[in-house]
């Protein structure tokens, strides 16, 4: 088992666009304060923000967790539904089921999941339609 020296969980409310991004902002601030390399902080901030926006836009609500070990960062996004029926399709750039209100804010281009994957050294997504989605994004520190 990996030993993480620090761990923080943020609960993310569905549809609350006014605070959407606060968790990612706080994660970014934490990583910066720990003196982690700027390029890595940026990659994790982008991944966290895309994951957070997906929780706000697409899920019924969930959580974002950041875990920090000496040699890796791990971000976990978990929600309680509605799940993704076809993950391969959801991963395609340009595929989006985002509602109009998300598009008005500049989201819903269907690039979030591929952005997260691009930022990650290891990317894992598991989803059960009707149950929920769990995402894991790992970035190596060495």
């Amino acid at each position: 088992m990996k030993r993480y020296i620090m761990e923080h969980t943020y609960s993310i409310e569905a549809g609350n666009y006014a605070v959407a991004g606060e968790a990612s902002s706080s994660i970014k601030g934490l990583l910066k304060k720990l003196g982690i390399d700027g390029g890595i902080v940026r990659r994790m901030a982008i991944a966290a923000y895309e994951a957070e926006m997906n929780l706000v836009i697409h899920s019924v609500g969930g959580s974002l967790t950041i875990k920090i070990a000496p040699d890796e960062l791990l971000l976990i996004s978990e929600d309680g539904g509605p799940g993704i029926a076809d993950i391969d399709l959801a991963m395609e750039e340009g595929y989006s089921t985002a509602p109009e209100e998300a598009r008005e804010m500049g989201f819903g281009a269907g690039m979030g999941l591929s952005n997260m994957k691009r930022c990650a050294d290891e990317f894992n997504i598991h989803s059960d339609a009707g149950i929920g989605t769990k995402l894991q994004i790992k970035i190596y520190l060495k």
Binding site: Y17, A18, A20, G21, S24, S25, K28, G38, R42, A45, I46, A48, Y49, M53, E104, M105, G106, F107
Partner: peptide, 17 residues
């Protein structure tokens, strides 16, 4: 440069400096 003016633009800018 953008035509979008909501909070998410500021958040986006913040994430990527």
């Amino acid at each position: 440069l953008t035509g979008i003016t909501n909070l998410q633009v500021i958040r986006t800018a913040e994430m990527i400096d």
